[in-house]
Design a protein around this nucleic acid. Structure first.
Lengths: 344, 344
DNA sequence: TTTAGCACTCGGTCCAAGTGAGTGCTAACA
DNA sequence: TGTTAGCACTCACTTGGACCGAGTGCTAAA
């Protein structure tokens, strides 16, 4: 519904504003190479674009800035993602080089690379464990009445949890229980562990184990932990170089949210595969009103695992970030799949 | 060397400045309850205190503010730590209630409590592993050529590391190796693991294991990890409410340091037991120039473990923070010792 | 339909005057 | 001799007016 020329002008204004963070006047638009109209003509078009809601004016004698709707239109209809350079691809590949670095470290590294490639803040959600299945359980006695329960998943993720060991249990007894657990629970999705425990395991244990009640108590402790996905940040301070965050109060509001991993994780988690772009107030939290968030998902062998995301000002280099995230998420998926597809 | 009256005035000025963050004038000092001198007299004393280096003037017609030396004198000679209220002690105790929460969670909680008690930023260093000893090693196969190595310490700390498994190893072979490791390495301080590996273990393995070279390669991967202590922060944004951090550039400099756990850990780590106060430029890093850092240590059974610390502006409530940290670190030590003293 | 011209708007900067909190110094007082 | 009242002085901060300039909207001509 926009004319060719309007598109051209809208794009020019967004380009300029993204780069300089200052209202763009008709004169400076007219000076662009590909722009063959006088400032007056452009002023007319700008007035129209403003009426349509794609631009706004900070005050009557200033230039125009893109509105949220303007960015949205740009993203939906005019976005051509920037390709990565060879060097950038090489930088990413370098990360995978240390071949058997732990999963968590890899994810953490991912966050660092994303923030350095985009110069925004990156937020990466660790594997969502509810799709992972149990590989093995271990119980290591620590003191006379406590032990560390260790749960390993098929993706190599390790969780541990201190539990109280009922008095009078000896090593053999514990071994027996652990064997039963491993026998019955291997391959069970973590999210079903508690349910299995209170049904099947319950029955088996009541047959073979002496101190049934205390044992169940211990196992409940073991699986009590809610398997929260971890949140990794990198380049948190990048956002502070943006002029829209010159006000410390805003910074505080934003960083307060960063301290709530739970909130962030909920907000970033993406159910369906693929890229998602949330602009300004499309985000749930008020401190994100001047921010845009772009997320993509990564998976192993088609199994949805987690989310990689970049947070920047609404005045963000969308093409660049979309380009980076698209490449990166797919590449990460490829690497992870290759590494973990041979399960069992 | 300071007169009674000078002490009184110095303390009054520090009190006032800590509270209001603005230069303190002679008039407002003279109005305090316990102050029976006219502004003129106080002005004379203030001039003397300035000459001695305990006070400074932002400009000629402003009141005085305490200098770094002033704070130092106050801390060294006039500090009477505030006791915690019953409610505050109760809050702390509440934290220990969930009795067998993991060690790491406990430490993380500690950071939260400290920051909420002081309204400053708290930084807590997790256990310094070099004093921990090995409790048990586990090796869990994940895919056909990789496994997760899990290391449990006597303090219930768990580390894990993905390793490449030499082709052709079967479960029994791995079990044998793990058994040898556990047999030879139990009780060995983590810091000596690598050394032991390249001496004793080497010999034993060459006798009992088939694919010696590949096995050594795997074990090297296993112990490659440098056992860095983790750093936990809480209330990072508290510092942003302080007027000295109204400037975003300062905030950025400070938060940049927060992103470098390594640096922080080095700077906060305390070799000897007890409380340490670093005021302003006594800190190593320029972004801390307007900050003071107070740290205390916690231990298990006399064995030095880690550090709890609070970071605030130089204009900090020293008495309060020292009171809180003193109580907290001792209490934490007590609880941890009680929980883990029964090792074997 | 496009453009040149022109009056107008309005935030930002500069400057001068005024304000007030605070100081240092001096002289008088107890 | 130590303390205090008084007074001139300093200086950051606020206020308001003048000015500047980037940018606009409108109108009329090309």
């Amino acid at each position: 519904m926009l004319t060719e020329r309007q598109l051209l002008i809208l794009k020019a204004i967004i380009d300029d504003y993204v780069c300089h963070a200052e209202p763009v006047g008709s004169r400076s638009v007219s000076k662009r190479e590909d722009m063959n109209f006088s400032p007056a003509t452009i002023r007319n078009e700008m007035a129209d674009l403003e009426e349509l809601g794609f631009l706004e004016k900070p005050h009557s004698s200033a230039g125009r800035i893109p509105s949220q709707k303007g960015y949205r239109y740009f993203v939906d209809h005019m976005l051509s993602p920037t390709m990565l350079t060879k060097n950038e691809v090489a930088d990413i590949r370098l990360m995978y080089e240390e071949q058997f670095v732990e999963f968590e470290k890899l994810i953490q590294q991912s966050a660092k690379i994303l923030s350095s490639l985009t110069s925004y803040t990156s937020i990466v959600l660790g594997p969502e464990l509810f799709e992972s299945t149990l590989k093995q359980i271990q119980l290591v006695p620590i003191s006379k009445d406590s032990a560390v329960a260790i749960i390993v998943t098929d993706t190599g993720h390790v969780e541990n949890q201190t539990v109280t060991v009922p008095g009078g249990f000896d090593v053999r007894e514990i071994e027996k229980i652990v064997n039963i657990l491993n026998d019955k629970l291997q391959g069970v999705p973590l999210i079903h562990l508690r349910h299995k425990l209170s049904t099947e395991i319950r029955k088996v244990l009541s047959k073979y184990v002496d101190q049934y009640d205390q044992t169940m108590e211990m196992l409940n402790q073991m699986f009590r932990q809610s398997h929260n996905e971890k949140v990794f940040y990198a380049g948190k301070t990048n956002i502070l170089t943006q002029p829209e965050f010159n006000d410390v109060n805003r910074v505080r509001d934003l960083f307060n949210i960063f301290e709530e991993d739970q909130l962030i994780s909920k907000h970033f988690r993406s159910e369906q595969h693929g890229m998602k772009i949330k602009i300004g107030e499309e985000n749930e939290f008020a401190p994100f009103d001047d921010c845009s968030i772009i997320t993509a998902t990564y998976s192993i062998d088609g199994k949805h695992l987690g989310t990689v995301g970049v947070l920047g000002p609404t005045r963000m280099e969308y093409q660049r970030v979309v380009g980076v995230l698209d490449f990166f998420s797919k590449d990460l998926t490829k690497v992870l799949t290759k590494r973990y597809q041979n399960n069992n």
